[in-house]
Design a protein around this nucleic acid. Sequence first.
DNA 1: CTGAAAGCGCTAACAC
DNA 2: GTGTTAGCGCTTTCAG
Lengths: 340, 340
Amino acid sequence: MIVTIKDIAKNTNFSYATVSRALNSKPGISKKTREIILAEAEKMGYQPNGLARGLVMKHTNTIGLVIPDIVNPFFPEIARGVEDTASKLGYNVFLCNTSWDVDKESSYLKALLEKRVDGIIIKPACDRPCSYSNSNIPMVLLNKMPRESKHSYIEIDNFKGGYLATKHLIEAGYKRIAFLGGIEDSYSTIERLEGYIHAFKQSNYKIDKSLIVYGDYNFKTGYANMTKLMGLENPPDAAFAVNDFNALGVLQFVGELGLSVPDEFGIVGFDNIQYAAFPQIQLTTISQPKYEIGKYATEALINQINNKTAKFMQKIILEPELIVRKTTLNSKSVAKATNQ
Amino acid sequence: MIVTIKDIAKNTNFSYATVSRALNSKPGISKKTREIILAEAEKMGYQPNGLARGLVMKHTNTIGLVIPDIVNPFFPEIARGVEDTASKLGYNVFLCNTSWDVDKESSYLKALLEKRVDGIIIKPACDRPCSYSNSNIPMVLLNKMPRESKHSYIEIDNFKGGYLATKHLIEAGYKRIAFLGGIEDSYSTIERLEGYIHAFKQSNYKIDKSLIVYGDYNFKTGYANMTKLMGLENPPDAAFAVNDFNALGVLQFVGELGLSVPDEFGIVGFDNIQYAAFPQIQLTTISQPKYEIGKYATEALINQINNKTAKFMQKIILEPELIVRKTTLNSKSVAKATNQ
DNA sequence: CTGAAAGCGCTAACAC
DNA sequence: GTGTTAGCGCTTTCAG
């Protein structure tokens, strides 16, 4: 039923070795026999067995992609970047969703190791060193980790992202700019907040701690945080949200409040997910090159796989980009208007 | 470096066989030796080798998921449904994006076969019988295929979906309802069109062929098709679009034209992707239970894998559901208003 | 209850 | 150029 290298050896009266050489385009074999063998393989419908090959070769041309949730619109593009470039380089990719759950994460990691993946790309389920930390498999992280110097990582310059967003809001003329962070002690939130503070200092704005709040990465959180903020004695007139999902929640709350955006309230998000560009939404945001993150991560990983001896670690920091849309006053047109 | 069953056999002075039995919780082994072996395995950091196991067991607990594009918002939820239930049942899943390209599709299929996946879930890249058709691996298709009786499939009742959408538009009082189809000869488009026609007949509306157009599944297509339709001598006052992406294009065009939705123009989409529910969008649509599609497909597949002898084929037809939001007049409130 | 040995399908020395 | 053979790490009869 299933045809092996042996069967085709029998049919062609060559040895396994020769058949194997022919099938793998190895040198040291006459053109004619190669053709005979290939023809027979084709005819018999031969399908190489990757398991057997992997067993002896000690690699599988397979990588794992471990992310929190493919439904979160931040991840599909990354996944696509990973899968496209892996495929181009001859690798297949296992997709794993951890739901931000460290137990699930470590069980996936274990499964991947059993399947003998050659490497792993992972967005850690939490910012504390976890299960993967002591693994020796080539790995690239989708964000920087505290006290972690073993694995390569790739991420956006969060400080700069926070800075650009805040500076834009300031230049657009907003006076009381709220910061809607993610998890309080997560690196990305900390760094974006530093960018925010830096922009404030640069403009001699003074920090109002009541305007700095935290939460998670969901729509609802943006909404809930705004409820709190707008109840303040001295409420904000603009918000920089940790991600676009959050910003959308802000947008809704502000809309329900009857404030006009961007005239009475400015919003900038983070990530530039597809939704942000929709005509009905037009969210100003800090763009992360998601597809490229996936692509570069994969290239770095496979590079690492192919240079096992070197064991070098790479840090890749990507540039954020401010995308001005319609949820903020465009400072340039404001300036122009002022001049006339 | 890497510890095998042999190493732990050596250390415990048992044979491979016994170790293997202990590790796999097989019967016929004393409690004590099992404990000794397990402890040693733990201590040595033993990681079973799935390749070796797969080679002898002839299955890998691995499935392939082949879809056009994970970035298309229709697919992440399906993928999540697949991955969650696969994981629950002890399987890992390979993700493959074909970009609707049949050559890519068949090359992925080949790779998956080499990797010895136990089964495949696939949204075919085209509606003609393709590469996979003659494969004997357990497979479930994410839509019905013409002249295909070999593989199981799961899909929504497209006829009913088309019918519900159109009927809703009719009841809401729209008079000239356009049909924006996908690929003209694709099954799903054909069946939705039949549903549309059925609703028309039921209400004694007459079909105007100039209002039936085709395209693909993108935003731009919806926009482009609307350009055409609104240039008609007798343009439509509503549209039923093949999917939500398309509908969003329609929404934009209509908005730019200055028509008010839903008062002057009604729109219903298909799929109920996340975007559709956004406060700023609120698209009326026909919902597909995407996560469940993935879930049921996986259950059917693994069921099939475990019953290789039976070789039964399953057809699963899911119920569509009309979700009324704000891009159509709500016929009930219309009725109410009339009564007062 | 435990061990010996065969073999899954393939690659890679090493011979000739 | 080609064949022989060992062995990758594991499961599974078959003996005992």
